[in-house]
Design a protein around this nucleic acid. Structure first.
Length: 286
DNA sequence: CGCCAGGCTGTGC
DNA sequence: GCACAGCATGGC
Protein backbone atom coordinates (compact mmCIF):
# COMPACT_ATOMS: atom_id res chain seq x y z
CA UNK A 1 0.00 0.00 0.00
CA UNK A 2 1.27 3.44 -0.89
CA UNK A 3 -0.80 5.84 1.13
CA UNK A 4 -3.08 6.22 4.09
CA UNK A 5 -6.16 8.35 4.67
CA UNK A 6 -7.72 8.99 8.05
CA UNK A 7 -11.48 8.73 7.53
CA UNK A 8 -14.59 9.47 9.52
CA UNK A 9 -18.05 8.10 8.88
CA UNK A 10 -16.76 5.70 6.26
CA UNK A 11 -17.19 1.95 5.76
CA UNK A 12 -15.34 0.51 2.79
CA UNK A 13 -17.22 -2.80 2.75
CA UNK A 14 -20.64 -1.17 2.78
CA UNK A 15 -19.61 1.32 0.12
CA UNK A 16 -18.17 -1.20 -2.32
CA UNK A 17 -20.70 -3.98 -1.74
CA UNK A 18 -23.81 -1.86 -2.19
CA UNK A 19 -24.25 -2.14 -5.93
CA UNK A 20 -22.74 1.16 -6.99
CA UNK A 21 -19.53 -0.27 -8.47
CA UNK A 22 -19.40 -3.75 -9.95
CA UNK A 23 -15.82 -4.44 -10.98
CA UNK A 24 -14.51 -5.02 -7.51
CA UNK A 25 -13.77 -7.92 -5.22
CA UNK A 26 -12.62 -8.54 -1.71
CA UNK A 27 -9.83 -10.99 -1.01
CA UNK A 28 -8.13 -11.58 2.28
CA UNK A 29 -9.41 -8.40 3.84
CA UNK A 30 -8.43 -6.04 1.04
CA UNK A 31 -10.44 -4.81 -1.91
CA UNK A 32 -9.44 -4.51 -5.52
CA UNK A 33 -11.53 -2.00 -7.44
CA UNK A 34 -11.35 -1.08 -11.09
CA UNK A 35 -12.52 2.27 -12.44
CA UNK A 36 -11.89 2.70 -16.16
CA UNK A 37 -8.15 2.03 -16.52
CA UNK A 38 -7.21 2.30 -12.87
CA UNK A 39 -6.75 -0.67 -10.60
CA UNK A 40 -6.98 0.42 -6.99
CA UNK A 41 -6.25 -1.65 -3.91
CA UNK A 42 -7.87 -0.66 -0.64
CA UNK A 43 -7.80 -1.89 2.93
CA UNK A 44 -9.60 -0.41 5.88
CA UNK A 45 -8.53 -0.80 9.49
CA UNK A 46 -10.82 1.28 11.66
CA UNK A 47 -10.57 4.86 10.49
CA UNK A 48 -7.36 4.12 8.59
CA UNK A 49 -7.81 3.58 4.86
CA UNK A 50 -4.74 2.28 3.03
CA UNK A 51 -4.65 2.60 -0.72
CA UNK A 52 -2.47 2.03 -3.76
CA UNK A 53 -2.89 2.22 -7.52
CA UNK A 54 -4.04 5.83 -7.57
CA UNK A 55 -3.24 9.10 -5.88
CA UNK A 56 -4.91 10.26 -2.71
CA UNK A 57 -6.94 12.91 -4.54
CA UNK A 58 -8.42 10.31 -6.87
CA UNK A 59 -9.24 7.91 -4.05
CA UNK A 60 -10.89 10.65 -2.01
CA UNK A 61 -13.03 11.73 -4.93
CA UNK A 62 -13.90 8.20 -6.04
CA UNK A 63 -15.07 7.14 -2.58
CA UNK A 64 -16.82 10.42 -1.78
CA UNK A 65 -14.59 10.94 1.23
CA UNK A 66 -14.81 14.74 1.05
CA UNK A 67 -18.62 14.82 0.99
CA UNK A 68 -20.41 16.09 4.09
CA UNK A 69 -21.98 12.71 4.66
CA UNK A 70 -22.27 13.19 8.41
CA UNK A 71 -24.58 16.18 7.99
CA UNK A 72 -26.80 14.36 5.51
CA UNK A 73 -27.05 11.29 7.72
CA UNK A 74 -27.84 13.40 10.75
CA UNK A 75 -30.73 14.99 8.86
CA UNK A 76 -31.98 11.65 7.58
CA UNK A 77 -31.71 9.98 10.97
CA UNK A 78 -34.19 12.49 12.32
CA UNK A 79 -36.79 10.92 10.04
CA UNK A 80 -38.06 8.06 12.21
CA UNK A 81 -38.99 5.73 9.36
CA UNK A 82 -35.48 6.04 7.93
CA UNK A 83 -33.59 5.58 11.16
CA UNK A 84 -33.15 1.77 11.03
CA UNK A 85 -31.61 1.89 7.54
CA UNK A 86 -29.34 4.81 8.42
CA UNK A 87 -28.09 3.13 11.60
CA UNK A 88 -27.58 -0.23 9.94
CA UNK A 89 -25.54 1.15 7.05
CA UNK A 90 -23.73 4.10 8.62
CA UNK A 91 -20.49 4.68 6.75
CA UNK A 92 -21.89 3.74 3.35
CA UNK A 93 -20.92 6.52 0.96
CA UNK A 94 -22.11 7.45 -2.48
CA UNK A 95 -19.20 6.94 -4.87
CA UNK A 96 -18.16 9.19 -7.74
CA UNK A 97 -17.71 6.69 -10.52
CA UNK A 98 -16.50 7.25 -14.07
CA UNK A 99 -19.58 8.39 -16.06
CA UNK A 100 -19.04 6.11 -19.06
CA UNK A 101 -18.40 2.98 -17.03
CA UNK A 102 -21.34 3.89 -14.81
CA UNK A 103 -23.64 4.40 -17.80
CA UNK A 104 -22.70 1.06 -19.35
CA UNK A 105 -22.93 -0.69 -15.98
CA UNK A 106 -26.48 0.40 -15.35
CA UNK A 107 -27.64 -0.25 -18.91
CA UNK A 108 -26.51 -3.82 -18.14
CA UNK A 109 -28.29 -3.74 -14.79
CA UNK A 110 -31.86 -3.56 -16.10
CA UNK A 111 -33.96 -6.53 -15.02
CA UNK A 112 -30.79 -8.31 -13.89
CA UNK A 113 -29.00 -8.99 -10.61
CA UNK A 114 -25.75 -7.81 -9.12
CA UNK A 115 -23.60 -10.95 -9.55
CA UNK A 116 -24.68 -11.23 -13.17
CA UNK A 117 -23.99 -7.56 -13.85
CA UNK A 118 -20.53 -8.01 -12.38
CA UNK A 119 -19.83 -10.98 -14.62
CA UNK A 120 -21.00 -9.21 -17.74
CA UNK A 121 -18.89 -6.12 -17.02
CA UNK A 122 -15.85 -8.28 -16.36
CA UNK A 123 -16.41 -10.02 -19.70
CA UNK A 124 -16.95 -6.68 -21.44
CA UNK A 125 -13.59 -5.50 -20.15
CA UNK A 126 -11.89 -8.70 -21.28
CA UNK A 127 -13.45 -8.70 -24.74
CA UNK A 128 -13.09 -5.00 -25.54
CA UNK A 129 -10.59 -3.56 -23.07
CA UNK A 130 -6.82 -3.66 -22.85
CA UNK A 131 -4.99 -5.45 -20.05
CA UNK A 132 -3.88 -3.10 -17.32
CA UNK A 133 -0.11 -3.19 -17.06
CA UNK A 134 0.84 -4.85 -13.81
CA UNK A 135 -2.81 -5.70 -13.22
CA UNK A 136 -2.40 -9.45 -13.18
CA UNK A 137 -4.70 -9.95 -16.15
CA UNK A 138 -7.39 -7.48 -15.12
CA UNK A 139 -8.50 -5.40 -18.10
CA UNK A 140 -9.33 -1.73 -18.32
CA UNK A 141 -12.88 -0.78 -19.09
CA UNK A 142 -13.32 -0.24 -22.85
CA UNK A 143 -13.29 3.35 -24.09
CA UNK A 144 -16.40 5.02 -25.53
CA UNK A 145 -16.73 4.03 -29.17
CA UNK A 146 -15.04 0.68 -28.80
CA UNK A 147 -18.13 -1.45 -28.10
CA UNK A 148 -18.71 -1.81 -31.83
CA UNK A 149 -19.13 -5.57 -32.28
CA UNK A 150 -22.65 -6.82 -31.68
CA UNK A 151 -21.75 -10.50 -31.65
CA UNK A 152 -18.95 -9.90 -29.18
CA UNK A 153 -21.34 -7.87 -27.06
CA UNK A 154 -23.80 -10.76 -27.07
CA UNK A 155 -21.05 -13.12 -25.93
CA UNK A 156 -20.84 -11.27 -22.61
CA UNK A 157 -24.26 -12.53 -21.55
CA UNK A 158 -26.02 -9.18 -21.59
CA UNK A 159 -28.84 -10.61 -23.68
CA UNK A 160 -31.23 -8.09 -25.19
CA UNK A 161 -29.16 -5.25 -23.73
CA UNK A 162 -26.48 -5.86 -26.38
CA UNK A 163 -28.36 -3.66 -28.88
CA UNK A 164 -28.72 -0.91 -26.27
CA UNK A 165 -24.99 -0.99 -25.58
CA UNK A 166 -24.18 -1.02 -29.29
CA UNK A 167 -26.35 2.02 -30.03
CA UNK A 168 -25.39 3.95 -26.91
CA UNK A 169 -21.74 3.30 -27.70
CA UNK A 170 -22.31 4.68 -31.20
CA UNK A 171 -23.97 7.85 -29.90
CA UNK A 172 -21.84 8.54 -26.86
CA UNK A 173 -18.52 10.31 -26.58
CA UNK A 174 -16.46 11.35 -23.61
CA UNK A 175 -17.20 15.00 -24.40
CA UNK A 176 -20.94 14.53 -24.75
CA UNK A 177 -21.12 12.74 -21.39
CA UNK A 178 -19.01 15.39 -19.71
CA UNK A 179 -21.27 18.10 -21.09
CA UNK A 180 -24.34 16.29 -19.76
CA UNK A 181 -22.70 16.19 -16.35
CA UNK A 182 -22.44 19.98 -16.36
CA UNK A 183 -26.19 20.45 -16.90
CA UNK A 184 -28.60 20.98 -14.03
CA UNK A 185 -29.92 17.72 -12.56
CA UNK A 186 -33.28 17.49 -14.33
CA UNK A 187 -31.75 18.39 -17.69
CA UNK A 188 -28.91 15.92 -17.23
CA UNK A 189 -31.48 13.26 -16.45
CA UNK A 190 -33.44 13.95 -19.63
CA UNK A 191 -30.27 14.09 -21.73
CA UNK A 192 -29.16 10.68 -20.44
CA UNK A 193 -32.53 9.22 -21.41
CA UNK A 194 -31.73 9.96 -25.05
CA UNK A 195 -29.40 6.97 -24.98
CA UNK A 196 -31.18 3.70 -25.80
CA UNK A 197 -31.55 1.44 -22.78
CA UNK A 198 -31.62 4.42 -20.43
CA UNK A 199 -34.87 5.26 -18.65
CA UNK A 200 -35.69 7.06 -15.42
CA UNK A 201 -33.93 4.60 -13.14
CA UNK A 202 -30.67 4.17 -15.07
CA UNK A 203 -30.46 7.93 -15.66
CA UNK A 204 -30.81 8.53 -11.94
CA UNK A 205 -28.07 5.99 -11.18
CA UNK A 206 -25.65 7.85 -13.46
CA UNK A 207 -26.75 11.19 -12.02
CA UNK A 208 -26.14 9.93 -8.48
CA UNK A 209 -23.14 7.60 -8.76
CA UNK A 210 -21.17 9.46 -11.45
CA UNK A 211 -22.31 13.07 -11.65
CA UNK A 212 -22.82 13.64 -7.95
CA UNK A 213 -26.42 14.86 -8.07
CA UNK A 214 -27.36 13.93 -4.54
CA UNK A 215 -31.06 14.55 -5.02
CA UNK A 216 -31.25 11.76 -7.61
CA UNK A 217 -33.40 8.88 -6.35
CA UNK A 218 -33.19 5.70 -8.45
CA UNK A 219 -36.31 3.58 -7.97
CA UNK A 220 -35.72 -0.14 -8.51
CA UNK A 221 -37.67 -3.09 -7.12
CA UNK A 222 -35.89 -2.97 -3.75
CA UNK A 223 -36.31 0.75 -3.22
CA UNK A 224 -39.92 0.44 -4.33
CA UNK A 225 -40.54 -2.27 -1.73
CA UNK A 226 -38.86 -0.26 0.98
CA UNK A 227 -40.83 2.88 0.14
CA UNK A 228 -44.13 0.98 -0.11
CA UNK A 229 -43.48 -0.48 3.34
CA UNK A 230 -42.46 2.82 4.93
CA UNK A 231 -44.77 5.20 3.06
CA UNK A 232 -47.73 3.11 1.92
CA UNK A 233 -49.83 6.14 1.09
CA UNK A 234 -47.32 7.90 -1.14
CA UNK A 235 -48.36 5.94 -4.24
CA UNK A 236 -47.24 2.82 -6.04
CA UNK A 237 -46.10 4.15 -9.39
CA UNK A 238 -42.41 4.84 -9.87
CA UNK A 239 -43.05 8.49 -10.64
CA UNK A 240 -45.10 8.89 -7.45
CA UNK A 241 -42.46 7.17 -5.33
CA UNK A 242 -39.75 9.39 -6.75
CA UNK A 243 -41.77 12.55 -6.18
CA UNK A 244 -42.46 11.47 -2.61
CA UNK A 245 -38.76 10.87 -1.99
CA UNK A 246 -37.78 14.27 -3.33
CA UNK A 247 -40.41 15.89 -1.12
CA UNK A 248 -39.48 13.88 1.99
CA UNK A 249 -35.70 13.81 1.68
CA UNK A 250 -34.91 16.79 -0.54
CA UNK A 251 -31.21 17.16 -1.36
CA UNK A 252 -30.43 14.00 0.66
CA UNK A 253 -32.70 11.78 -1.45
CA UNK A 254 -29.74 10.02 -3.06
CA UNK A 255 -28.29 8.95 0.27
CA UNK A 256 -31.74 7.99 1.55
CA UNK A 257 -32.35 5.79 -1.47
CA UNK A 258 -29.00 4.05 -1.32
CA UNK A 259 -29.40 3.30 2.38
CA UNK A 260 -32.92 2.00 1.81
CA UNK A 261 -31.67 -0.15 -1.06
CA UNK A 262 -28.79 -1.72 0.78
CA UNK A 263 -30.61 -2.13 4.08
CA UNK A 264 -33.50 -3.86 2.37
CA UNK A 265 -31.11 -6.27 0.70
CA UNK A 266 -29.19 -6.92 3.91
CA UNK A 267 -32.45 -7.80 5.63
CA UNK A 268 -33.19 -10.33 2.89
CA UNK A 269 -29.67 -11.77 3.00
CA UNK A 270 -28.69 -10.59 -0.45
CA UNK A 271 -25.44 -8.71 -0.82
CA UNK A 272 -22.77 -8.58 -3.49
CA UNK A 273 -21.30 -12.05 -3.79
CA UNK A 274 -23.66 -13.39 -1.13
CA UNK A 275 -21.42 -12.48 1.77
CA UNK A 276 -18.78 -15.15 2.11
CA UNK A 277 -18.52 -15.94 -1.56
CA UNK A 278 -16.94 -12.66 -2.61
CA UNK A 279 -14.61 -13.87 -5.27
CA UNK A 280 -16.65 -16.73 -6.60
CA UNK A 281 -19.49 -14.61 -7.83
CA UNK A 282 -17.74 -11.29 -7.92
CA UNK A 283 -16.07 -9.53 -10.80
CA UNK A 284 -12.43 -8.90 -11.58
CA UNK A 285 -11.47 -12.50 -12.09
CA UNK A 286 -8.07 -12.60 -13.68
C1' DC B 1 -40.86 -26.48 -14.34
C1' DG B 2 -41.62 -21.91 -12.03
C1' DC B 3 -40.17 -17.08 -10.40
C1' DC B 4 -37.00 -13.30 -9.88
C1' DA B 5 -33.34 -9.86 -10.88
C1' DG B 6 -30.73 -2.00 -9.26
C1' DG B 7 -36.15 -1.73 -16.31
C1' DC B 8 -36.66 -0.21 -20.99
C1' DT B 9 -39.18 -0.06 -25.34
C1' DG B 10 -43.08 -0.32 -28.18
C1' DT B 11 -48.02 -0.50 -28.54
C1' DG B 12 -52.73 0.55 -27.51
C1' DC B 13 -55.93 3.35 -25.24
C1' DG C 1 -50.83 10.78 -19.82
C1' DC C 2 -51.64 5.52 -18.39
C1' DA C 3 -51.16 0.30 -18.40
C1' DC C 4 -49.21 -3.82 -20.27
C1' DA C 5 -46.53 -7.34 -22.88
C1' DG C 6 -42.07 -8.72 -24.46
C1' DC C 7 -37.58 -8.95 -23.73
C1' DA C 8 -32.43 -12.69 -22.85
C1' DT C 9 -30.00 -14.68 -19.28
C1' DG C 10 -28.77 -17.18 -15.14
C1' DG C 11 -29.64 -18.47 -10.14
C1' DC C 12 -32.43 -20.71 -7.12
Amino acid sequence: MHGTIETTCFDLDLTLASGQVFRCRKEGGSWTVCSRDRLIRLRQDGPRLEFSGAGEAFVRRFLGLDDDTADALERLERIPRLRPAIRACRGLRIVRHDPWECLVSFICSTRSNIPKIARSLDLLARRFGRPISGGGGVCAFPEPGSLDDLDLLRSTGVGYRAEYLFETNRLCTEERLAAIGRLPYEQAREALKEFPGVGDKVADCVCLFAFGFREAFPVDVWVRRAMLALYPRSGTRESEIRRAALRLFGPDAGYAGQYLFHHRRLCEGKTLGEGKALGRGAALSA
